[in-house]
């Protein structure tokens, strides 16, 4: 078997694949954070909880109502998106004019609540979800084995990322959104319903997180705590990439997943820390992040 730097090719490519998949999740989550940040100028601390809710909803919908994966793929994000809009309407809107630190703390409180409630109902050990039969098995690519579901995750994540990028950069709605990012008062002056746009944006960002959650349900263990760890990693990814651009968030997410996968192959002890270390290095060299615009 061929070896690269003392590591069998199959092992290396397997870890790379896992890295790309993790990266796809980072990309989806940091994309949602970036979309919300653009218009609301807040970091959504409840993002991890929304990701978790997406995954939990998938499992719960299946267990109680027998809703299958394909339906959940649409229903769960929509449900979570509605919850997000409710949070924006009833809570975030009330502290609109305040320091952004408060909205961060508010979403943190919301995350604690959601996680606490679900932990009480479903325990910490988590739920099981078996993937649809279509995805069982995989194909042999010669140098590695590619499970179908993992391929599906990558393709779907990339499609959604690209779709979001297209919508924001190339459509009329996206133009409103970008205008709102620049100067929301002026946009309101042009007769656009900015408060509605804000609600929709928050709902959409949260939907992206929930969608990532649905994708994650069959491959990761679904627990009420699954969101909080990945959120901290995604924060580091966001700091590395900078909040400058949508494309930047996607690229950085996947890149960091790959870096993590490579570290797992060559120096496993550091794999959980490597993204944070990259963050430190980036901050020391280029404080505004790889794709950041502001000083």
């Amino acid at each position: 078997m061929s070896m690269i730097l003392g590591v069998p090719l199959a092992v290396l490519s397997g870890q790379l694949l896992l890295g790309v998949i993790n990266g796809a999740f980072y990309a989806l989550l940091s994309l949602g954070l970036a979309v919300i940040f653009g218009l609301l100028k807040i970091i959504n601390f409840a993002h991890g909880a929304m990701y978790m809710l997406g995954a939990m909803a998938t499992v719960i919908l299946f267990d109680t109502l027998g809703v299958n994966y394909w339906v959940a793929l649409f229903v769960a994000p929509v449900l979570v998106g509605c919850l997000g809009m409710a949070i924006e309407y009833f809570l975030l809107r009330r502290i609109g004019g305040q320091d952004h630190i408060y909205s961060l703390l508010l979403t943190f409180g919301v995350a604690l609540m959601i996680q606490g409630i679900l932990t009480n109902i479903y325990g910490v050990s988590g739920l099981r979800y078996s993937m649809p039969d279509v995805f069982k098995g995989g194909m042999n690519l010669g140098f590695m084995f590619l499970p179908y579901y993992r391929a599906w995750v990558i393709v779907m994540a990339l499609l959604v990322c690209f779709g979001t990028w297209f919508m924001i950069e190339k459509t009329k709605l996206g133009a409103y959104l970008r205008a709102g990012t620049e100067d929301s008062q002026l946009l309101q002056g042009f007769g656009i319903n900015v408060p509605l746009l804000v609600s929709l944006t928050y709902g959409f960002g949260v939907m992206l997180a929930a969608f990532a959650g649905v994708l994650a349900a069959p491959i990761y263990s679904v627990t009420p705590g699954m969101g909080s760890h990945i959120l901290i990693v995604v924060f580091a990814v966001v700091v590395i990439g900078g909040m400058g651009s949508i494309a930047g968030a996607i690229i950085t997410g996947i890149l960091m997943g790959v870096v993590e996968g490579l570290t797992k192959t060559f120096y496993p002890q550091a794999s959980s820390a490597v993204i944070f270390l990259v963050m430190v290095v980036v901050l020391l060299i280029r404080p505004s992040g790889l794709f950041g615009k502001e000083a």
Binding site: I42, I43, I101, L104, I232, F235, A236, F276, M279, P287
Partner: peptide, 28 residues
């Protein structure tokens, strides 16, 4: 030294990430 390079919510995110790094250090 690392965190004061950014302000506001970035500062919060950076300190959180650094603390998580320390958490892994303490675990291992």
């Amino acid at each position: 030294v690392v965190a004061i390079r950014r302000q506001g919510i970035y500062f919060a995110m950076i300190t959180l990430a650094l603390a998580q790094l320390m958490f892994f250090f303490f675990v291992q």
